[in-house]
Every structure is written in structure tokens, then in C-alpha cells.
Design a protein around this nucleic acid. Structure first.
Length: 578
RNA sequence: GGCGGCGUAGCUCAGUUGGUGAGAGCGCUCGGCUCAUAAUCGAGAGGUCGUCGGUUCGAGUCCGACCGCCGCUACCA
């Protein structure tokens, strides 16, 4: 038994997340967490909403709400949606929690004490009409390079030229359209990443097991030279800078990207303070995060989209390393490419794509979990299409997994009643079956150990298919007419395999797995672990005469009418002009 | 502009450090079965691995150029 800390990139508070966000971090983190728990390990799965920054303030403004209330409401929405998707985090916290405030202030103080911060004065665009400083991209105007009249202050989307807000001709606020803009000086705290670059590179060098994508992104930033980074902002919503520590930056807040990853710590502290780690919250927290207090035995795995990699390989480690304290750094980092909608971007503004709330309106979480993980964008961007979704559901869940369980259940009940059949002892065909099952199971757990989700889904599908292959080979429907004892043996083994499926499938389709496991009220499957021992455990379970209550259909088939209607509702390939 | 990634069967994608006849799932064709949500099982067809050139005894796998798509470029998060 090992100890595993798992975090997924924090979903931003600004609205319901789409399926791309889900499959890029939260869902694979959950599959992995469930797998490790099922394999008998101690797991702490942490997530939280990322609540600070300009978009949160603007979102609250748009909904005519106090920003704290706005965040509280959206946090609850995201929590509820996550839970309905079966996300089994041990704690779903908030970066706006008191715990995160304290930790952020603490780390900033430590960085200063270690000499890794510096105050610098920068020029910022201030909008008088809006009464606030504007981030570069919230200033729009005419591009001096190509004349595009809606260029953003950081880059012109038309010609691609990088810009400074002051380069723009006829600049105006993206919020109000006001042209009453001023350039004002503002003092900000900078994190001296340049001074930490060598330590960071050495640390990245040691992570030889990281995927190519991850390492190449980290090295790219290191090779170009890590720049010092402003870690405060002129906003009202955020974690306030402690004026005792940084008097020059009093009245400002920490940059959202500084406090967001600290949210992993903050959320863990929330979990500990809630008493979920034992009576001593301090110790409960420390044994997961402080290497001097037991966290050196923890394997820490992070999940995120590829856009987040620099922050997790460089910025956040810089914060932790620079503190001079013994914080646990990430061991394994799994990053994902983008899930696209028919090859195009998921887009809120254009109303294209499927969001978590939409998805659950149509079908339970298991359906989406399976499709998304079996087609996860691991090595490249991957397309969502309704056709593929329909195939994954109808072919894999209904046709292979559900059908094996159902055809087995039907025959058992018809010929032997709602009990595990007695009959002949196992023969050579059964030895062969369980040998094949063992191989498939090994493929499956190997892939999960390596964080290869598409491969593990394919292995699980193959494991399900072994059930149908076995039935086709042994033909209990034919055997039962001449040899009821032989048929009983076949169906008994089929039931045991179904029980194995219930345990093995849990990381991907937890709800269906639970229903299936409940069909065997006398089985000791709660003690089974998802590893190589599962084969013998399953084969040795279910004594003749044990109760069996048919679970009914585990999954419902999707009609072509359903799929066509959904494609129509959400926009399909035809709308993309490709 | 700079950097990075991708381009492999109709579709979505795998292909460790270059090496026996290039793979999976779906779709398609044919066959078996009829217990099962017209589900399932088996067999088969289908690809000059984006283009051109190079290195090598040998390249989808390495190098160069080109074409196409995508992403990043540090104040969106």
C-alpha cells in the first residue's frame, strides 16, 4: 500500500465547464483516484474552484451580483455537477477560503524572506469610466500594424502581432468602450523566477519519466530564460497583500495564478480542518504536503490541460522551492491535449459544444465518463462527435458490457432461478477463460499504472468482451437442453466474471459497477482489490446457492433519432463550414 | 515573426530506443449463433504511413526542405 496525492487543475469559477475541461483534468484524475483506492492504496484527491481574477469580477458584474456571492453560487453549481459525474474527490475546496488566504500570505512572506521577491513599478492602463486598471487584453483599439480595429492590447488577433496596450491607436476599454484611459504607475511584487531557474532546471532534469509534451514545454521556457513575474494585481477581489510584509503593494491582491496552485494546499487544509484527516488538522495536512512530516512517502500526481503545464512545472514549483520549506513537489504530471467539437473549438460564445450541465440533462455520468476516457486527447487533440459518442455507448457499454451481463442474467434466472447455479465443476475451458481474463486484467492495470487512459479503456473493453467470447464458445443456451449441470457450470463462471467486471470497471463507470455489484449480495467483493489477485478472488467467489438478483439493463441504447436530435441541438459538423 | 506539436485504413486514433508480411475500435462485406437492448462471435476487404529529397544493409520511426492544420508566445485564466 502506497500513499497517493492527486490534484486536478482547478476549474475556473466563471461558469459551467465543458466536456473538454472535464476530460482534461478532473475526469482522468478521478479515474486514477478510484483505481488506486480500489487497488488498496491510500488516496487523497483534491480539487477546488479557482475564484480570483478579472473574469470573476466581470462575471459577477454581468450577473449583477456581489462577487463573493457569485463565486459561492458557482462553486456550489460546479460541486454539484462534479458529484453527478461521479467525481470522487476527497475535498472540493475554494481558492477564496480562509485557509488559502493564510497559505498564500505565508508563502509570499517566505519568498520575500528568502530573497525571491522584489517590488517594481510598472505602467498600467487605468480606465476612469470603469474605475479600474485594465489587463492588457481588456484594452482594445486599432492595430498599428494591420489596421484591424478590434485588436487586443496584448496581441492583434487579425495579424498576430504582439502588442502593448499603448501601441494601440484609439484605445478604449473592452468593458465600457470608454476612451477615457490613462497610463498610471503602480508598484507590484515580482517573483524572481530568474534566480530560481537553475534549481528548477535541475529539478526538471530529475523528472525523466515525465511525458515528452510536458518536458518539452518546461525546457522551452527554461531555455528562453525564465522571466521574473509580477504576482500582484490591482483588483479588489482576491487575496489581499499583507501590508506588513509588502507595504509598497498595500491595497493590491495576489495574482490569481499565484494563489490558484496554492489552492491545492488550501483545499487540503480545508479538508484537514473539517476533521476528515483525523483529530489533529495540522498533522493531517502536513503528512500529505511536508516531506519532513511524512509526505516524502507520498506520490504526487497532477492532471491538467497542456496550457497549464508551464505553471505546474515552473511557476508553482518556483513558489514552493523558493519558500525554503519542505513542500512536496509533483512527481507525476499528466497533461492532456484539447478535446475539440468536430475539429473546432468548444465555444461558449458561439453556443457550440457540450457543457457538463447539458450532458447530464441527456444521460447519466457513466455514459460520458466512458466515452470521454476511451477517447481522451492524450497524444493529440481529439474530436468529439455524436457519431463516435453513439458508437462508444451502443457498442461498448450496451453491446459488450451490458449485453454480457444481461444475457448471462437472463439465462441464469430462466434455468436456475435467482441463485448462483451449482452443477459441474470447472473444466479446461474455464481454466482457459480465467487465464485470458488474467492477461486482460494485467493489460488494464498496467495501462492505468502508466496513466495511459485510452489504452486502459481498450483493455477494459477487451476484458468485457471475454465474457461474450466465453459464452459463444460454450453456448449455454444449447448445452442446457441436454446437460443442465454443464450449463450451470458455464453460467456460474459467467456470473463470477460479471462480478470481476463490476470491480474492474468501477474507475470508469462507477454507477453501473455499483449496480452490478449489488446483484451479488452474498459476495465478499468489497474486500477485493483491483490488481492481479482479483482473478482468483472472483473465480473463488459466488458459492452455489448464493443469491443473485438481476441488475436489469445497465445501459440504455441510444437511437439514431436521439443522436440526430442532439447533434441538431448542439450544432454538428455541418455548422462549422468545413 | 519565434517556438512547439500534428498530418498513418471511410471515421477516431495506437505505433517504446529505426529491423520478421504496418495495427486497434468503429464503419463496410461475408459467415456462425439465436441466450441477449437486431445485441454477439468469427473471417475478410481496405493504407505508395502529407509531399520531395537525404542518411542507412534497412525508415511510419532519424535529417533537410516544402505543403496543410493546431497550439503557445509570459497582464485571460
Amino acid at each position: 500500500m502506497a500513499r497517493h496525492l492527486i490534484t486536478s487543475a482547478l476549474p475556473y469559477i466563471n461558469g459551467v465547464k465543458h466536456l473538454g475541461n472535464l476530460v482534461g483534468s478532473m475526469l482522468p484524475a478521478d479515474v486514477y483516484a478510484r483505481y488506486l483506492r480500489s487497488a488498496g492504496h491510500e488516496v487523497l484527491a483534491i480539487c477546488a474552484t479557482d475564484e480570483h481574477g478579472t473574469p470573476a469580477e466581470l462575471g459577477a458584474l454581468a450577473e449583477d451580483m456581489d462577487v463573493a456571492e457569485y463565486c459561492a453560487r458557482h462553486h456550489e453549481t460546479q460541486r454539484e455537477l462534479g458529484e453527478r459525474f461521479g467525481l470522487s474527490w476527497d475535498w472540493f475546496g475554494r481558492t477564496s477560503s480562509p485557509q488559502n488566504h493564510e497559505l498564500t500570505a505565508h508563502l509570499a512572506r517566505r519568498l520575500k524572506a528568502e530573497g525571491y521577491t522584489e517590488t517594481r513599478t510598472t505602467s498600467q492602463v487605468y480606465s476612469v469610466a470603469d474605475g479600474r486598471f485594465l489587463p492588457d487584453r481588456y484594452v482594445i483599439g486599432t492595430c498599428p500594424n494591420c489596421g484591424y480595429d478590434r485588436a487586443r492590447g496584448d496581441q492583434c488577433e487579425n495579424c498576430g502581432k504582439q502588442l502593448d496596450p499603448t501601441d494601440l491607436l484609439e484605445p478604449r476599454s473592452a468593458l465600457s468602450g470608454s476612451t477615457e484611459l490613462e497610463v498610471r504607475d503602480s508598484a507590484h511584487v515580482f517573483l524572481l523566477q530568474s534566480k530560481l531557474a537553475d534549481r528548477l532546471r535541475k529539478w526538471v532534469d530529475s523528472k525523466s519519466d515525465w511525458p515528452n509534451l510536458t518536458r518539452s514545454i518546461a525546457y522551452k521556457w527554461l531555455d528562453e530564460g525564465l522571466e521574473d513575474r509580477g504576482i500582484t494585481r490591482d483588483l479588489s477581489w482576491g487575496i489581499p497583500v499583507d501590508p506588513d510584509d509588502f507595504p509598497e503593494a498595500a491595497g493590491k491582491v495576489w495574482y490569481v495564478w499565484f494563489d490558484a496552485p496554492i489552492g491545492y494546499l488550501g483545499a487540503t487544509r480545508e479538508w484537514a480542518d473539517a476533521g476528515l484527516g483525523g483529530d489533529d488538522p495540522r498533522a493531517a495536512f502536513d503528512r500529505w504536503w511536508r516531506t519532513g512530516a511524512g509526505a516524502d512517502e507520498v506520490t504526487y500526481t497532477q492532471f491538467m490541460g497542456k496550457d497549464n503545464v508551464p505553471f505546474h512545472t515552473l511557476s508553482f514549483p518556483a513558489t514552493l522551492l523558493g519558500s525554503g520549506e519542505d513542500w512536496l513537489l509533483v512527481d507525476r504530471l499528466k497533461s492532456f491535449n484539447w478535446l475539440t467539437y468536430y475539429g473546432g473549438k468548444f465555444s461558449t460564445s458561439e453556443g457550440r459544444g457540450v457543457f457538463m450541465s447539458d450532458a447530464l440533462e441527456l444521460l447519466p455520468g457513466d455514459y460520458w465518463r466512458w466515452y470521454l476516457m476511451a477517447n481522451a486527447p492524450e497524444s493529440d487533440d481529439a474530436s468529439f462527435t455524436w457519431e463516435l459518442f453513439g458508437d462508444a455507448v451502443n457498442k461498448d457499454l450496451v453491446g459488450t458490457f451490458g449485453n454480457f451481463v444481461n444475457r448471462t442474467a437472463t439465462q441464469v434466472v430462466r434455468h436456475f432461478g435467482e441463485v448462483v447455479p451449482d452443477g459441474d465443476p470447472d473444466g479446461a475451458a474455464e481454466d482457459l477463460l480465467w487465464e485470458r481474463v488474467g492477461e486482460r486484467l494485467r493489460d488494464y492495470t498496467d495501462a492505468l499504472d502508466q496513466l495511459q487512459f485510452r489504452r486502459s479503456a481498450a483493455a477494459l473493453r477487451a476484458l468485457w468482451a471475454e465474457g461474450n467470447v466465453y459464452l459463444e464458445e460454450r453456448e449455454p443456451w444449447r448445452v442446457v437442453k441436454e446437460d443442465p449441470g454443464g450449463a450451470a457450470c458455464i453460467l456460474r463462471n459467467a456470473l463470477r466474471l460479471a462480478l470481476l467486471h463490476a470491480v474492474a470497471s468501477e474507475p470508469f463507470v462507477p454507477e453501473a459497477s455499483r449496480r452490478l455489484a449489488e446483484a451479488f449480495p452474498d459476495a465478499a467483493h468489497t474486500g477485493f482489490t483491483l490488481d492481479a489477485t482479483l482473478v482468483d478472488d472472483a473465480r473463488g467467489s459466488l458459492a452455489p446457492g448464493d443469491r443473485f438478483s438481476p441488475p436489469g439493463l445497465l445501459f440504455t441504447k441510444l437511437s439514431s433519432e436521439d443522436l440526430a436530435a442532439w447533434e441538431d441541438r448542439f450544432g454538428g459538423g455541418d455548422d462549422l463550414g468545413r
